[in-house]
Design a protein around this nucleic acid. Structure first.
Lengths: 194, 194
DNA sequence: CGATTCTTTGAAAACAGTCAATCTGTGTGG
DNA sequence: CCACACAGATTGACTGTTTTCAAAGAATCG
């Protein structure tokens, strides 16, 4: 399926979009294919795009002073990635967005995103819901960080993101959960034996 | 200063509000005084209000099955509290909102909030910014949870929320950070000796 | 195959949680 | 004013978990 049609199928399920809406959205975006290990955003840059993943998988992460990576988010197909703050305030980002697989994305610049929201009200509504969801999920993640044991976090990840779980190496799950790869390996081992 | 005027002063600094806007907002809200240890929301209820704190201090927290409390947020004056999800979907909440001091609040119901957004565009704009900020702060908190040592989390709390820090007992800071009160006590002790 | 990348394992050390006892400060009522 | 209760903070001893480091074992890819 052509890349933009994937997006059309997705967005049509999220709200009431007319043919004209879809045409407008298409005119505001560019599509891009990137290969595994390529970056869509790197620390120090100003974030230029809001990214829709039509196919493939992205990881959003920060690198600490000592070189340790912390994964903030995985974005598989039909999900989004960006640094909202850097894009909005035009300040350098601390985050990196990298493809874990060969990936096809649809890109909005700040201007074209504004334009899309202005000319396609259903898109603006969807963007609002997207932000609400992001906030809900992030709140949930804070709560999980505070109150779950490492085993529970691991369980939760598997059930919450099964599609991601079986496409990424274990050490990235560990990075997402905030534990060492060794610990997660041992937890998985103990779990399997049950 | 009368309670609603505190809100007027605050909101006027956040956007362009006319006298008429402020009159409309006032007509959509109710004000309330609650005493220390009283609740504005309890687990199992459906959240009825979006809360602006004009004076005092609220804590938002969940209670785990084993009775352990996890504080999600402190809301001192000029900040907000609610369970957005429960309010939007009219489902029972898992969270509690309790006053840590005698507190004065301004309340919007779901209907009056919609009405305020519809009739006062500057208010809707502000609500959008409020959500963006909430998301930014929550993302930052996830990152802190993942990458900071307990000492660093404690430091960060002091500098990020100095006003809250010196109004709440240490064990609540511990609950917010996700460590035991004993550990935080020892960390503080070690810190003071430097 | 050779080179990465990823995972596992063991042992030691660092860290945090738990439990129990004590200490401190605050405010209340007699 | 004192005694007491109460909430909060601290401390020590112990336990349990996680990290770290080092080495070795799979698995994958060009």
């Amino acid at each position: 399926m052509p890349m933009f049609e994937i997006f059309e199928t997705f967005i049509t399920a999220q709200g009431d979009f007319t043919e004209e809406d879809l045409r407008l959205l298409r005119s505001h975006t560019t599509v891009k294919k990137i290969r595994r290990k390529e970056f869509l955003l790197q620390e120090g840059e100003i974030c230029r795009y809001k990214i829709f993943v039509a196919k493939g998988l992205l990881k959003t992460y920060v690198v600490r002073h000592d070189g340790v990576e912390h994964i903030l988010r995985f974005s598989p197909e039909n999900s989004w990635a960006t640094d909202h703050e850097s894009m909005k305030t035009q300040t350098p980002t601390r985050i990196n967005i990298e493809a874990l697989e060969n990936t096809e994305v649809i890109l909005w610049t700040r201007e074209s995103l504004d334009e899309s929201c202005k000319t396609v009200p259903a898109f603006q509504t969807y963007m609002g819901r997207l932000m609400e969801n992001a906030l809900r999920i992030t709140h949930e993640r804070v709560l999980i960080n505070l109150s779950y044991t490492t085993e529970e976090k691991y369980e939760d990840f598997i059930t919450s993101f099964p599609d991601v779980f079986n496409r990424v190496p274990l050490h990235m799950v560990a990075s997402y959960l905030g534990v060492s790869r060794e610990t997660l390996s041992r937890i998985r081992h103990a779990r399997i034996k049950q």
